[in-house]
Design a protein around this nucleic acid. Structure first.
Lengths: 336, 336
DNA sequence: AGGCGGTGTCGAAGCGCTTCGACACGGTTG
DNA sequence: CAACCGTGTCGAAGCGCTTCGACACCGCCT
C-alpha cells in the first residue's frame, strides 16, 4: 500500500502539504499542487480509511438501518437503499448496511465506535425503540418515516395524509360516492408504522369534506385474503364503486377477483393504488396511482444528513408532496 | 467517547492488558479479566473503529456490491443483501453497501483504502469488468453468480443447470412431451449474466435425455409482452403442455392469459416456476417451483469470505442444489 | 538451592493520517 | 525603509488502538 509519506517524498514536499492538497483546507500553489497530484496518480495512492478516520474523527460513512422483514415493501426499501447509496457517494460518503435485527443496540454500537458519522433509519415506528438512543447521541440522524414525536428529529417521508386525500379527491371528482380503502395487513397497523394510519386519516378528512362515505379494511396479501375482504366490503357497502388500495400484494388479486365477478375496471368500479410506479404500470390493468417516491426519499434523506454533518442542518420534517398519475383503472362512477 | 486508556486506568491495568482482554490473543487471569470487563461495562466503552482498523490493518468490514438496476430480481437481491448483513454480524463484521454504479472503480477504491477486508460481488456477468481488478488485489472476495472463467475465484450460486434439468424431469415424469421455457427479458441474455443461459442448458440436456421437445423464448415482463410470447409459442408448438417460467414479472401474466384462453392449470397445462418462494406461494395458482435460495446464497458467501479471511479459504465454486416443491400448478399431461 | 519454563502483565513503538502553530518569503503600506 | 500582512510550506504532536519483546513471578524439577 502506498502511503501519504511516500507520495510526499516522491513529490518532494512534506506530508502535510500532500494532506492539504487532498483536503483543500489550505491554499497550495498551482505548481506544487500539480506536482503532488501527478505523484498521486503515478503511485496509485489511496488514503487509508482507518487512519483518516482516526486522525479526523470522521469516517465518511453513513449507516443505513433497513428493516429485517422482507415481507412488505421490498422493492420500495431496495430502491431507497440504492438511492441512499448512490447519493451518498456523490457526497463522498459510503454506506454501512445495518439490519433491524440488532435493534436499538446497533445505534449504540455505531455511535460508540465512531464507525459512522451519521445514521439513516428506515421503517420507523410511532414509538420507535431506537429514538431515545438516537436523541442521546450527538450523531447526525435522519428518519425515513414519521414517529409520533418528531421533536428534535429530522424526518423525510411521503405525505401520506395528502396522499389519502388526493385519492379521494380524484374518485370524488369522478362522481364516486362510496369508497373502500383496502389497506395493509393488520400486523402493519398493530406495529404502528404510522404511514398506513396517516393515509386513512387523510382519506377520512377529505371524504367528509367531499361528502363521500368511506369504509376501511386491512387486508393480508394473496387471493384468499383478498376474496374475503372483498366479500365483506360488498356485504357492508354494496354501493361501493371506488377502491383505494395501499398494499402491493393485494393489487393483482383485487383486479383478478373483480374480473371474475364480472365487474369491469374502470367502467363499473374504479381502483386507485398507492404503490411504486412499477407495480402500477405493470399490473394487468394499468393503475391510476400515487407513486411512492422511493428514490426521492432516499436522496433527500442523504442530503439532509450531509447538510447536518456540514453544520447547515435543520431539525425538520420534510413531507414529499404526492402525485397522482391517471391511468386506465379509474373513470366516472357508473350512473345511479 | 471513552477510550481504551480510560478503561485501563479505571481497572488499574495497562492499556495492552485491556486490549488483550478484548481480543483474547493472550491469556489473562480470571481476576483481571473480570475487573476489566466490569470497567468496560461501567464506562460503556466501545472500541474506536478507525483506530482499530489502523493499528490492526483489518477493518472488520465486508463490502457488498449490489446491482444498480432495480428492474429484476429485486426481492432476491434484497434477501441476499439482508442475509449477508445479518450473517456478517454474527461473525463480527459489518457490511458496506456499494452499488454497481461506480463499477470497477469501486473495487479499486475499496481495496486501496483498506476500507473493507473483503468483498462480495453480486450480479456477476460472464465477462465481468471487475474481475481483473479483483484478481490483482490481495483482498478476499466471493462472487454470488458465476463468471465464464472461475479460475482463482470463489463463487456461490444456485446450480441453474441442475435447476433446469429438475424442472424438465418433473414435467417429463408427468408425461409432458413438449415444453416451453419462458425466460428472462432479452436484455438479460445480452448482458450475459450466465444464470439464464445455464438454466436453458440444463433444460436442453435433460430434455434430450428424456426425449422431450423444448422451445425457449425470452420474455419482457408485463401483460402485452407475455401475450405476444404466448402467441408465438402456441403458433410454433401448438402441442406444448408444460411451461417453465424463469421471470418473476411473467408469472402472473402467464397465469392470467392461460385462464383467459380457457386453458386450465394444471389440467390442461402445467407450469413450473423458477422464482422466490414467496412469489410461488402467493401467485393466483400456487406454483410448483424451484426456489431461489437467496438467504442461503448470502449466508454461504459470507461464510466463505470469513473462512478466507481466517486463512482457511479455498478457491472453489459452490453450487447449491435446487429443490423442487410441488404445488398446484403442475399435473399429469392431458391425454393425446 | 539454583535454574527452568510457563503464565500474566506492562511499556513502547508504531499504524497513516490530520491539523495546529511556526515560519520564510515577497509584496504592500505609511 | 521598516513594519506589516498574506500566502505557501513544514515539523511535530497526536488520534486510539494493536502487538512485540521484555520481565516479574510462581512452582517445578533435579
Amino acid at each position: 500500500m502506498v502511503t501519504l509519506a511516500e507520495v510526499a517524498q516522491h513529490a518532494g514536499v512534506s506530508a502535510s502539504t500532500v494532506s492539504y492538497v487532498l483536503s483543500g483546507k489550505r491554499s497550495i500553489s498551482m505548481s506544487t499542487r500539480e506536482r503532488v497530484e501527478r505523484s498521486i496518480q503515478q503511485l496509485g495512492y489511496h488514503p487509508n480509511a482507518g487512519a483518516r478516520a482516526l486522525a479526523s474523527s470522521r469516517s465518511n460513512i453513513i449507516a443505513l438501518m433497513v428493516p429485517l422483514r422482507t415481507d412488505m415493501y421490498v422493492p420500495v426499501m431496495m430502491e431507497i437503499a440504492i438511492a441512499v447509496a448512490t447519493t451518498a457517494r456523490t457526497h463522498g460518503y459510503d454506506v454501512l448496511l445495518l439490519t433491524g435485527e440488532e435493534g436499538p443496540t446497533a445505534v449504540r454500537r455505531i455511535a460508540g465506535s465512531s464507525l459512522a458519522d451519521a445514521m439513516i433509519l428506515m421503517d420507523v415506528e410511532l414509538q420507535d425503540e431506537r429514538l431515545p438512543l438516537l436523541r442521546e447521541t450527538d450523531r447526525a440522524a435522519v428518519l425515513i418515516g414519521l414517529p409520533a414525536d418528531t421533536d428534535g428529529l429530522t424526518c423525510v417521508d411521503l405525505d401520506f395524509e395528502a396522499t389519502g386525500a388526493l385519492c379521494v379527491e380524484h374518485l370524488a371528482g369522478l362522481g364516486h360516492r362510496e369508497i373502500a380503502v383496502i389497506g395493509e395487513a393488520a400486523a402493519v397497523y398493530e406495529r404502528h408504522t404510522g404511514f398506513a394510519e396517516r393515509t386513512v386519516d387523510g382519506v377520512r378528512a377529505k371524504a367528509q369534506e367531499a361528502g363521500v362515505r368511506v369504509l376501511h379494511r386491512s387486508c393480508e396479501g394473496g387471493y384468499a385474503a383478498m376474496a374475503q375482504t372483498l366479500a365483506r366490503i360488498s356485504d357492508e357497502r354494496p354501493g361501493t364503486s371506488g377502491f383505494i388500495v395501499q398494499n402491493e400484494a393485494a393489487v393483482e388479486p383485487l383486479l383478478n377477483l373483480l374480473r371474475q365477478q364480472g365487474r369491469a375496471v374502470p367502467e363499473d368500479v374504479s381502483v386507485v393504488a398507492i404503490c411504486p410506479e412499477q407495480v402500477a404500470s405493470q399490473a394487468s390493468v394499468r393503475l391510476t396511482s400515487v407513486a411512492i417516491p422511493a428514490q426521492e426519499m432516499g436522496r433527500r434523506a442523504v442530503e439532509q444528513v450531509v447538510a447536518k454533518l456540514g453544520g447547515r442542518g435543520t431539525d425538520e420534517v420534510e413531507l414529499l408532496a404526492p402525485e397522482l398519475t391517471v391511468r386506465a383503472s379509474s373513470g366516472p362512477a357508473p350512473l345511479g
